[in-house]
């Protein structure tokens, strides 16, 4: 579905991503793990075209993404849940979800998708009139995921959904990811919580200092000695 070949990117003179190749197939949940500052967020921002790739090829369902303006990426079926959730704090939960369905092709299905999101996150339905800024961290993450689902994406990009959340809430968020992959969503998830994310992912890539160091099936990586040592604390 999504394919990156030898992609490099950075900010100004600082290069954050080197020669990265990665693939996500339909129906898969793929994790990208790695330490802080490894370039994980940059990777997602490149896919969403928020920053330019300085080299390499990106395709979504065989169509090139390289020169697509960032606001048209969503039309390719890619929805991005950004780092730190980035809800609109002074809009209600429902208005945030409405923003997720902004593109004309999504507006027609607004009511139906809203029901689906509310089914996935019953809490959001209770709080639909509440301002998003007043939600708890976990609720905000759910709202942000719900917002991304409103566009009816084929591929969901999740940037550190567990960051800054209490352990119980982290469990709930990964439960949601598991539920989504069971429902057939394709997910590319970037995480520092390696232990948890390898339980829900089918495959994973290890990104360190902007380069892919390892890749393979999630259950294999869980048994990998290097990963065990550096990321699972075993």
């Amino acid at each position: 579905m999504l394919k990156l070949s030898n992609v490099s990117a950075g900010y100004g003179s600082f290069q954050a991503l080197f020669d990265t190749s990665l693939e996500v197939n339909a129906g898969e949940t793929v994790a990208v793990i790695g330490p802080n500052g490894a370039g994980k967020t940059t990777l997602l921002r490149v896919i969403s075209r928020l920053i330019d790739a300085s080299a390499g090829e990106m395709t979504m369902e065989a169509r090139s993404l390289n020169t697509v303006p960032s606001h048209e990426v969503i039309a390719y079926g890619i929805a991005h849940v950004p780092e730190n959730r980035r809800l609109f704090p002074r809009l209600s939960v429902e208005d945030n979800l409405r923003m997720g369905a902004y593109v004309p092709s999504a507006r027609a299905n607004f009511a139906e998708r809203l029901e689906r999101v509310y089914a996935l996150f019953p809490r959001m339905k209770e709080r639909r009139k509440q301002l998003a800024g007043t939600l708890s961290g976990g609720e905000q993450q759910m709202c942000a995921i719900g917002r991304a689902l409103m566009s009816g994406p084929k591929l969901l990009l999740l940037d550190e959904p567990s960051a800054g959340l209490a352990p119980v809430v982290v469990q709930a968020i990964f439960e949601v990811v598991r539920k989504m992959s069971a429902e057939g969503y394709t997910v590319l998830i970037v995480e520092q919580n390696v232990q948890q994310v390898l339980k829900v992912a089918d495959r994973a890539y290890l990104l360190e200092t902007g380069r892919i160091k390892l890749s393979g099936r999630a259950d294999e990586l869980r048994e990998n000695d290097a990963i065990k040592k550096s990321y699972l604390g075993l």
Binding site: H71, H80, P82, R86, Y102
Partner: peptide, 24 residues
């Protein structure tokens, strides 16, 4: 309206509007 909601939203977070499919 969608447009009206976008107008309210953009003042709160300009940078992520493209992720909503909005051209700021």
């Amino acid at each position: 309206s969608y447009l009206g909601t976008a107008i309210r939203a953009i003042s709160q977070d300009r940078a992520i509007m493209p992720l909503m499919g909005v051209n700021p």
